[in-house]
Structures are given as structure tokens and as C-alpha cells.
């Protein structure tokens, strides 16, 4: 088990840097995790992060990339529901990187 230090508070993560307790997440932690992934957060990034958190809240799973892409297209507009758009924001994979920043577990089936 590892941990990260954000704003004077310690948060437990797994060996790959995913937050253990997603209820501890806050935007500050999100920003910190984004830095560890070398992702510069913009409104577009936050839109995806917030979407992921809402999705998890509702279904208790992190969506597979294909499912995320489709759902984003439905919710935020077809121009954003493409893997080009999402990989543009999160070069190492929207599933892997965005889920980590959102404080979610790694999506099932994502290795």
C-alpha cells in the first residue's frame, strides 16, 4: 500500500496510484493525481472526470472505454463521443488515466 500527500492530508492508494477510498476524493486530489499523470486539467477534462464520477455513483463500476465513449457522446454531444477526443485529453487511455484522476478503480477488463 502507498499513499499520497495532498493539502496536508494523506490518502491511501494502491501500487498503481489508484485511490483506495473513493469517498475521500475531492477536486484537489483530482488535480494532484492529474499531475502525477502529466495531464494538464482543463474544463474539457473536468467534464469527463465529472461524468465518470456520476457514472460510478449510479452503477458502481468504472465503464469500459467503449461504453464510456458511447455514453459521453450521448450526454455531452457526438463530437465528444469519439476515442480521438478522449485520447486527446487522456493520452494513456481515458479508462486508465481518467478513472485514476476521478478517484475510481481501474475499469473491469482494463489491464
Amino acid at each position: 500500500m502507498s499513499s499520497i500527500e495532498v493539502g496536508g492530508k494523506s490518502y491511501e492508494t494502491d501500487e498503481e496510484g489508484y485511490l483506495i477510498d473513493l469517498s475521500e476524493w475531492n477536486p484537489e486530489v483530482g488535480n494532484y493525481l492529474a499531475q502525477t499523470e502529466n495531464v494538464e486539467m482543463t474544463d474539457q477534462h473536468w467534464e469527463v472526470i465529472n461524468f465518470l464520477r456520476e457514472y460510478f455513483e449510479e452503477y458502481q463500476i468504472a465503464p469500459a472505454v467503449r461504453v464510456l465513449t458511447k455514453a459521453i457522446g450521448k450526454k455531452l454531444g457526438a463530437d465528444k463521443g469519439t476515442s480521438e477526443y478522449l485520447y486527446g485529453l487522456f493520452p494513456y487511455g481515458p479508462g486508465k488515466q481518467a478513472c485514476k484522476i476521478a478517484g475510481l478503480p481501474k475499469p473491469t477488463g482494463c489491464v
Binding site: E58, Y59, Q60, I61, V67
Partner: peptide, 14 residues
């Protein structure tokens, strides 16, 4: 124990 039943509602999206 994690309540995984909400995930059945996500199956449609899969």
C-alpha cells in the same frame, strides 16, 4: 460488502 447490483443496470450500455 460492495453492493454490485447497480451494475446490472449498466449492462444495457454494454
Amino acid at each position: 460488502i460492495k453492493n454490485f447490483s447497480p451494475a446490472y443496470r449498466a449492462l444495457d450500455g454494454y
